[in-house]
Design a protein around this nucleic acid. Structure first.
Lengths: 191, 191
DNA sequence: CGAAGTATACTGACTAGTGAGTGTAATTGG
DNA sequence: CCAATTACACTCACTAGTCAGTATACTTCG
């Protein structure tokens, strides 16, 4: 009962992605994912060895799109590097106002799997954040920032900070505050 | 079989606190909490109407101690206000190096209950963060910072940011980076 | 050609266990 | 007496993962 042209494995990941992000990893059963994907649980287990493997695949699939979004927001912004960074936070605030927004999938997964630091999904999350950080560092280096790696780490902290804070209090204006803070740090690093 | 002088309700909250913080809310069963508290599940349900109520009580019990810790670290630090703020992050880094450290209980709970923004435990979490923020704002106001509320929000973002980041990557040095960023922001707000 | 074999994709029914929360009768201790 | 507590059986829903098998298409070889 293949309802789309996509390969089954991808359809499973798509279904898992929507459910895991929308409701949380522990809250979603393998049965629910299978049903959403329009196939049997047994078929799901034909493509994935375990739920843990499926969780890792879900996060893996969000790596490139998420980074790409940041890069697009940055590239398309007008003004100096502080303005470009600020724009990322503005766009984030816009996303966070969407009713289906539920924070950062990587951070929420890390919170749910806090007792399993070696879990494949956690490793995927660490790798993703490292990629974002490395991209920021290279952008700062291109602008002649004195310690681009340090500044990139600081921006990552504000980025993940606003994800965490807004997930709790549901007030996306904190993202704009984070953007101000980020711009301040960028300017301080340039001075 | 009362093993300590503490009232039963408190013993339940203590047990819940250890388990919920250590393993996560969804991962811990009511049976497990009852066993840890040394009493029957039936007795637990005599004191709490539901697991949700117990979760809220757990977070409620951490509010004052957590804030108190921050205040002590701040008060006992030497130097200007930027140094005092930095000290909070240094102390946080020290805690994060403890093997039982598992991030911020409020943020992890918010992540686990992302689909229930009105949950009593979430409300407790929001109130806690607001208290910390208000305390920071009053400390900044006393130092003549121009917009103490804004700076307090920025520091909160770095605080929760390093909780989130370090929960994921288990590298407490990010807390020291956050402390540097915080000190930079404080100095910028004083200039 | 055509029969046998094989790889891939898929399925419904099932196991064995866990979850929150309840009902109830009996017990303890101030 | 009364509030707190226990023992424990029980409901009902859910959960990760498995068993044994089917359908289809492609290959192999006599």
């Amino acid at each position: 009962m293949k309802t789309s042209g996509k390969p089954t494995r991808e359809r499973i990941i798509d279904a898992a992605s929507k459910l895991f992000y929308g409701e949380g990893i522990r809250a979603v059963s393998v049965d629910a994912v299978a049903e959403k994907a329009g196939l049997t649980k047994r078929t799901l287990y034909y493509h994935f060895q375990s739920k843990d493997e499926l969780i890792a695949a879900y996060l893996d699939g969000r790596d490139q799109p998420n980074l790409g979004l940041f890069q697009r927001w940055f590239d398309e912004a007008e003004g100096g590097i502080d303005q470009k960074i600020r724009m990322i936070f503005w766009q984030l605030a816009k996303s966070a106002r969407h009713p289906r927004w539920k924070g950062c999938g990587y951070l929420r997964t890390a919170a749910e799997l806090a007792t399993m630091p070696g879990h494949p999904a956690i490793k995927t999350g660490i790798a993703h954040k490292k990629r974002v950080e490395a991209w920021l560092a290279s952008a700062f280096a291109a602008e002649g920032v004195r310690s681009p790696e340090l500044l990139a780490r600081q921006i990552i902290l504000l980025l993940d900070g606003c994800f965490a804070v807004v997930l709790l209090n549901r007030d996306p204006s904190y993202m704009e505050t984070a953007g101000e803070a980020a711009a301040t740090l960028v300017k301080a690093a340039l001075a």
